[in-house]
Nucleic acid binder design. Sequence first.
DNA 1: CCCTGATTCGC
DNA 2: GCGAATCAGG
Length: 178
Amino acid sequence: MTWTDERVELLKRLWGEGLSASQIANELGGITRNAVIGKVHRLSLSGRARPAAAAPARPRKATAGARPATNARPAAPAAPPPRPAIAGNTAIKLAPAAVPEPRRETRGNGEVVVPISLRASLMTLTEQTCKWPIGDPGGDDFHFCGNRSKVGVPYCEYHSRIAYQPVQERRRERRAAV
DNA sequence: CCCTGATTCGC
DNA sequence: GCGAATCAGG
């Protein structure tokens, strides 16, 4: 993939909004989070909120041809990313007691805040993000559950149960059939 | 285990 | 310049 001006700008925006590299990666599509991080660094906008920190000389390892990606992480104070409460940002509500593991930015009572740009596209649907739709498709606050799901399963555990409910009935009928 | 960003270095 | 591989940490 090429880093067109548009893509670079989007990258800057999303990164500035505090999205993770992987999220930005599948937001842009066609690239990995490594590419995003690499670009971020090249653009020198790594330290999201913290300007400080001068690289305190990292101890590179043996030279020769090997690939000693030895230690790494001297710099990088990593301060809590600024969560610029996006204006008009629609806080989405989770069904009461529904999602078991709201592993996202949550505030107060279980509301989940999703960055606009994140919701704009298919959210960051990966292999293990619950793709259970919530809200009216096409509605402004339509989104996906987004909780982690097991590999190969499209939904988180909670929604899997809902999705595959009819098993019991099935079983009954099947017995009669077979 | 899942994830995060950081760094190095061959290309 | 790019990004996979790798590292280090949560």
